[in-house]
Nucleic acid binder design. Structure first.
Lengths: 187, 187
DNA sequence: TCATAAAGAATGAACGATCACTCTTTATTT
DNA sequence: AAATAAAGAGTGATCGTTCATTCTTTATGA
């Protein structure tokens, strides 16, 4: 599909130059299409940004579905295997785009809406897993731990992006250990 | 000083439009100065960005010094008071700038260098506190916890920015609880 | 004391490049 | 031949940056 072709090119450009630094002419060049042709599939540059955010989080959505079905968190080893799925977050190639999206969400309401939507889904699923893994914890405490897990996820994205020398595997290990601690801790 | 005047204006514009979205003419208007005048104090727009990053983290540097001196973490209450100092991170007004900086660090080597420098300082100080608070923990484990604390800090910034409805106090409480857990946990 | 010279501070029009976007023209397909 | 796909030059606006110029202050000489 032509749309995907444009989004692939836009992703490359946005990663290298940011949403506002990248230009339509360079996106067109990367997509091997003309500028005018792109405007037959997207009504504006902003529309491309939104579509790219949607696509980026669609991948995460798929991950969440898999995570949701895998809820046998009886043992620590299970939890660790479960958490390994979150390697998605720290793909060093795509993490910068996520960070760019978060930053843009602070300015662009449409982007903020996309982010809010996926955030809610993430919390729903995480909350369920958290409750089933550590029964008897007060709802308030569950929410606090949930918040911490969300922070750890976003923080991992931030670290991968800002510190090029950081080892993704080490970051993921630290993430897993911290989340495991949050899941199994007694009330 | 005129430089501060420019940086204040630039901060306002960058917050609203991002580093690449903001223009020199709008920055000049916000600073109530002419464009040409600005170029007597900064050699380029990029220099303004770098200077703003430096200034942003200089505030954090001051915080770190205070944190360093306050190392009586014998009790949970002490830790909590100590951690309260980190409210700096989630000032909802300035957090978006931090996120913008992190995102830019993925592209701009000069920004990355500033980020790396402050990151090292942060870790040094945190590491010392961590070691003194929970003696006998293997160095490897200390580093993992340190990494988690850094992630939590950055994640807090990200959440505050991307989710305008999030309550800063609630986020900070979750952050504190999670970090406390990481500090006091046995080996 | 007052005119004038020198120096800095400040301006904003102008520059070439590039921006997002449109529109006429050309290829290609049916 | 009709319809659709694709191209890319052209649009006015705006970009970061420069620079000739003016304003403001301070210093100097008579």
């Amino acid at each position: 599909m032509r749309q995907e072709q444009v989004l692939d090119a836009a992703e490359t450009c946005f990663l290298a130059e940011g949403f506002h630094g990248a230009s339509m002419s360079r996106i067109a060049a990367a997509a091997k299409m003309s500028v005018g042709h792109i405007y037959q599939y997207f009504e504006s540059k902003d529309a491309i940004i939104i579509a790219l955010c949607e696509r980026r989080f669609a991948g995460f959505e798929h991950l969440l579905v898999a995570v949701e079905q895998d809820t046998h968190l009886a043992q620590a080893a299970d939890i660790d295997a479960w958490l390994a799925q979150f390697a998605w977050w720290i793909d060093p190639v795509r993490a910068p785009l996520t960070l760019e999206i978060m930053s843009e969400a602070g300015r662009n309401p449409k982007v903020a809406e996309v982010v809010t939507r996926i955030d809610r889904r993430f919390r729903e699923i995480m909350r369920r897993s958290l409750i089933s893994a550590a029964a008897g914890i007060p709802a308030e405490e569950v929410e606090a731990r949930l918040e911490a897990i969300v922070m750890l996820s976003h923080g991992m994205t931030s670290r991968i992006t800002a510190d090029r020398d950081a080892d993704p595997a080490r970051l993921l290990a630290a993430f897993r250990a911290a989340v495991r601690r949050l899941i199994v801790a007694p009330a």
